[in-house]
Design a protein around this nucleic acid. Sequence first.
DNA 1: ATAGGATCTCTAGCAACTAGAGGTTCAAGA
DNA 2: TCTTGAACCTCTAGTTGCTAGAGATCCTAT
Lengths: 151, 151
Amino acid sequence: MLSIGKLSAATGVKVPTIRYYEEIGLLPEAERSAGNQRLYRKEHQERLAFVRHSRELGFPLDDIRELLSLSDRPDMSCAAADVIASRQLAAVKDRIARLQALQQELERMLAQCAQGTISSCKVIEVLSNHENCLHAHHGEGCHSANPGHDG
Amino acid sequence: MLSIGKLSAATGVKVPTIRYYEEIGLLPEAERSAGNQRLYRKEHQERLAFVRHSRELGFPLDDIRELLSLSDRPDMSCAAADVIASRQLAAVKDRIARLQALQQELERMLAQCAQGTISSCKVIEVLSNHENCLHAHHGEGCHSANPGHDG
DNA sequence: ATAGGATCTCTAGCAACTAGAGGTTCAAGA
DNA sequence: TCTTGAACCTCTAGTTGCTAGAGATCCTAT
């Protein structure tokens, strides 16, 4: 029986995140000690590891929920899991393609910048006029540049 | 003088988003008509295009705010803009590397899945055990698989 | 004059957490 | 046994970048 802190240390998922997962029904409600503190077993740890790993692979929580319910039914065809993973793969490929276009554009911007003043700065210029772009990029979409949890 | 709707059509930025940008101070407060409706000029349109393009390039709003204030000072050295763009480039490269690792892993997962039942499904298995991974991925971080606005 | 689309403000919601307040419990040391 | 302090509890609110809806007002075309 692990405390939430031990479970957190064992899985690398932060304590509030574990509680959050329980709250939204991704993890079952934990048992409680006499003093109302959460207690976990190996099976919870495995489930949480599954969630964590799926998150690392970029699956949204709703997909993980589905994947979890699939993994609870070992007799079913895995076609459904396959569909989810394929969908995710397609999304990942798409994101990569977009990001590579952005990378090129940023590199081009920076290469053109002659370290002068703003008035001649290609970075600002390129940002001002879409016509300067090589690519018809239409929004990569992720709103934070560094939203990860890898410190 | 453009109405907010025309400005929206001209820039591709949705009406509520324009109002939102004004609210958070990214755009100056618009002039108003006698009936209290927002009115914009070419300069606003340009500023909004700058914002939009920067967003498409993945810059977070705080960076764009900084970039805007730079572009308002044409005499300054563009080193600061360079720093922001370089930072963004690094973030983009990092994201690409992570996503490529994820792509490989998903492909491997799917290739191994022999279309049997869940109990033999590699997708579920790989998700369950991090040890099955080739890569030491540590969180790509973006929470939605398809958060773009190009649907 | 009137219909209906565009606009206004305001609040609430989305993902997926994170941070903090204010209180309780547990484990280790004296 | 007592005490300290870390870890735990619940609850609310904040983050980012918007989006959706309610209910009211305005503007334009007929």
